[in-house]
């Protein structure tokens, strides 16, 4: 089956630009507050939002997202709230995928979660601590409910693992630009471009998104020059401190960034 995100990447490709993907955890600072912030990301120019599932033990996240996840959990967010946030985004015509550590989905029931996410209008799931080797249940459920499965690769991934991970992926492949946890960085790692080149050898035709570290339009333009999608997380969490206007402004800056490369080509 065609990827649910295929139309997005086709449209961006026609514009000769990378897609802009923004992350925020559902329930931060509150469930309704996160609805408004995610809407602001789309209004500001994000092509797709990653709705994060706050989790008690986020081992791939740096201090910014850790703090937001803790705050959301303290405020009482539940997995069913995450689904309702996805539903409201989809109902307003936005595209959403869920980003989640695996245990909340395991606990909910993998097939039930896939069914409910698909019913809510979600398009897929990004799984930072689930590798294809352990994902038999999820691959079957994603197939059954027509959801994209977005796995991660890293600079340390061997060629063999790049190929195997790409083969299990649908939608886009998420390339971690650095070895490390999430968090805005001043400089885009040189490892990102190298990794994307390696991925392209093993994942013919599969879009590649680059995340971990991007925080402004200039960095977005740099990443957009070699990737199919620019993924921004921690910087949006920080911007959320300034509310809807802060998030909308960051999205607009980043959206200009991903178009700068196209403008240079034209």
């Amino acid at each position: 089956m065609t990827a649910r995100l295929a139309p997005l990447f086709e449209a961006c490709g026609a514009d000769h630009r990378a897609a802009l993907i923004g992350y925020l955890p559902a329930g931060y600072p509150t469930v309704d507050g996160s609805r408004a912030l995610l809407r602001a990301m789309l209004d500001g120019g994000c092509d797709l939002v990653e709705v994060g599932v706050p989790y008690s033990d986020p081992v791939l996240d740096g201090p910014t997202i850790q703090a937001a996840s803790e705050a959301a959990l303290r405020a009482g967010v539940r997995l069913r709230d995450v689904l309702s946030v996805v539903e409201s985004i989809a109902a307003a015509g936005g595209r959403a995928v869920v980003m989640t550590y695996w245990n909340p989905v395991h606990r909910y029931g993998v097939d039930s979660f896939a069914r409910d996410l698909a019913a809510a209008g979600g398009l897929g799931v990004i799984t930072p601590d689930l590798i294809p080797d352990e994902a038999q249940d999820w691959l079957a459920a994603a197939q059954a409910h027509d959801l994209d499965r977005i796995f991660l690769v890293a600079p340390s991934s061997t060629d063999q693992r790049l190929a195997a991970t790409a083969a299990a992926t649908r939608g886009f492949l998420y390339a971690s630009s650095v070895m490390g946890v999430t968090g805005a960085r001043d400089v885009v790692s040189s490892a990102a471009g190298t990794l994307v080149s390696r991925v392209r050898e093993h994942a013919l035709g599969l879009p590649v998104g680059v995340g971990l570290g991007v925080r402004n339009g200039a960095q977005a333009a740099e990443v957009a020059s070699f990737a199919d999608a620019v993924i921004v997380g921690s910087a949006f969490v920080t911007a959320a401190g300034a509310g809807v206007p802060g998030v909308r402004a960051l999205a607009a800056d980043l959206a200009t960034g991903v178009r700068r490369h196209a403008a240079q080509l034209a």
């Binding site: 081992v59 791939l60 695996w102 245990n103 930072p128 601590d129 689930l130 590798i131 080797d133 352990e134 796995f151 991660l152 690769v153 890293a154 600079p155 340390s156 991934s157 061997t158 693992r161 991970t165 971690s176 070895m179």
Partner: peptide, 20 residues
């Protein structure tokens, strides 16, 4: 061979750690 004791065990970690 992949570290499963019955249904338990395995590797539920980021891909970045698999090589190590």
């Amino acid at each position: 061979a992949r570290g499963h004791f019955g249904r338990y065990g395995g590797r539920f970690v980021p891909e970045a750690l698999i090589k190590a």
